[in-house]
Every structure is written in C-alpha cells, then in structure tokens.
C-alpha cells in the first residue's frame, strides 16, 4: 500500500510539471491553431538558462524561475512576432515545417555553444526526500516544483478568467474574427499567448533541471509528451491539459513500479490510444463539427 501511495503521489507531482508543458502547448494551439513542434526545444532552452544561472551565477534552479519565466516570455513573443504571425493563414504543413525548423535551430545553436555533453545540476537537495508519513517519502525537489507549478497554474487561470487581456485571449481563441470586431488586436494576443506558452515550457524546463540530464536534444522527448498530454486532454482545453499532465505522470510512475520502467512509455501510449478510441476529441475536448 505504501508503495502504491508513494508512486501515486510521485506521479501526481511529476504530472504537475507535465501539466505546465501541456498547458503551454494547448494555449498556443487554442489561440493560433498552430501546433508548436518547437515546444520541447523551448523547454530545453529554459533548462539551459537555468543551467547558466546555476553554474555561472550560482542562482538556485527554483529561484531562477523568476528570471526564466519573463525571459522565455519575451523569447516566445519574439518568435511569434517575427515568424509565426506570418504563417497563421498558411496551410498546416508549412506551419509544422516552420516550428520544426525553429526547434532545430534552437537545439543546434545550443549544441554549438555547449556541445552535446550531458550536463547536470546538482544541488544540496537534488536527492533529498521528505517523509510524509505512512512509510511514504517524497522527493523534495519534486515537491517544491509541484508547489511552484500549482502557483503558476492558479495565477494563469486567474489571468485568463478575470483580466481584460486574459478574456481577450480566450475570445481570440473562440472566434478570431469576432474578437477583431471587439477592437481586440488579435496579433498582439497571439504574441502574448505564444509568450505565455513559451514561458510555461521554459519554466517546466527550469523545474526539471535539478532532476534531469540536460542536453541539446532533450526537447524531442518533451515535444512528444506535450503533444500526447494536449491531445489526451482535448486540444485547446487548459483544464484538459492539466488533467492530461497529471494522468500521464501517474501512469508513468505506476507502470514504472508495477511493470518496469522500460515499459512506462508503452503504457502511456496504450492509454493514449484507448482514450482516443473512446473519446476522439480528448478528455475535455468538444467534438468539432
């Protein structure tokens, strides 16, 4: 029982970070109808920013989120303004090629600067655990990262629901032309949405940096993961991405314990296929007619 609780809780904690990745992708898709295949590479850039902050400036990875978030927001906004805004009306293949290309540029640039060596951030707490009772102990960095994720998600939720800009972003996602007729500058909303999506991905990168290998190609794993999370949750649904992230975190964690860690990705994809078989629009998705 303790083992079950242990892996369930760990799964939820890691799922929080996955949720952050998924929410970023779903936000970008919701507003732009563009699938961002550079999402994992943006996360990777966030990891390296954290690495730089840690090794060169001695800033703690979790504290560095305060810098990573705004920097990645600006980076994402720049990508949208300079590249993505130009292909919004292009065919899907061209949009996909563009984001894949941007991702390749990011990973190759990072490889030029840092080589493809694996980097590690080892903090005093990297492998420390916290006993929560009942024989269950949780990884401290995972726990901290989950708290940060929850805070960011709550803030984002409030922003999207309660502020004029947040509502305008949702309006743009629901009907771009109608939003334009409200006097909403939809290009600006797209820049903010891509900025936010990138900030979330970059922050996720910062949060996993203390417990993960850092290398230029690490992004591809997370692009795939982000894609699975958002499709599972329902493309464009923020709540769906949250659920999808947690569900995948828990599935990975439980199957690593009860089947084998080599099989956890297989289990995730079987789950993914099963959900799509019975609910093709995803958990929280509406079927588009």
């Amino acid at each position: 029982m303790a083992v079950f609780m242990q892996s369930l809780l760990s799964g939820i904690l890691i799922g929080g970070v996955y949720a952050l990745i998924g929410i970023g992708l779903t936000l970008i898709f919701g507003v732009m109808r563009v699938i961002n295949f550079a999402h994992g590479d943006i996360l990777m850039v966030g990891m390296y920013l954290t690495y730089i902050a840690f090794t060169w400036l001695g800033i703690d990875p979790f504290v560095s989120v305060l810098v990573t978030f705004p920097l990645m927001f600006l980076f994402g906004g720049f990508l949208q303004k300079v590249f993505i805004n130009r292909v919004l009306k292009a065919v899907a293949q061209n949009q996909i090629l563009l984001t894949i290309g941007l991702g390749l540029i990011m990973s190759n640039t990072v490889m030029l600067i840092f080589t493809s060596d694996y980097k590690l951030i080892s903090t005093s707490y990297s492998s420390s655990t916290l006993k929560v009772g009942g024989g269950v102990s949780l990884s401290t960095p995972l726990l901290v990262s989950f708290l940060i994720t929850a805070t960011i998600t709550a803030a984002l939720y409030w922003f999207l629901l309660k502020t004029d800009t947040g509502q305008a972003i949702r309006a743009t996602a629901q009907d771009r032309e109608a939003a334009t007729l409200m006097g909403i500058n939809v290009k600006r909303m797209s820049i903010i949405a891509f900025g936010l999506g990138s900030a979330l991905a970059g922050t996720a990168g910062a949060l996993i940096a203390p417990t993960y290998y850092i290398f230029p190609q690490v992004g591809s794993v997370f692009t795939l993961k982000a894609f699975v999370i958002t499709v599972l949750g329902g493309m464009g649904s923020v709540v769906g991405a949250m659920l999808g992230g947690i569900l995948i975190g828990v599935t990975e964690s439980l199957s690593a314990v009860y089947i084998s860690s080599g099989w956890k990705d297989v289990v995730v994809f079987v789950l993914f296929l099963l959900v799509l078989l019975f609910k093709p629009s995803g958990l929280m998705g509406k079927s588009r007619t």
Binding site: D164, Q167, A168, R170, A171, Q174, D175, E177, A178, A179, L181, M182, G183, I184
Partner: peptide, 17 residues
C-alpha cells in the same frame, strides 16, 4: 458570432474591451 464558451457577462465585457 457570440463567444460560445464565455458567459453573457463576459461577452458583454469583451464588447467594451
């Protein structure tokens, strides 16, 4: 062209964006 997933009040608020 109502925003389908926003409430009546939110739709009106968007009118005075």
């Amino acid at each position: 062209r109502i925003f389908p997933e926003m409430t009546v009040m939110e739709n009106l608020r968007m009118g005075s964006y």
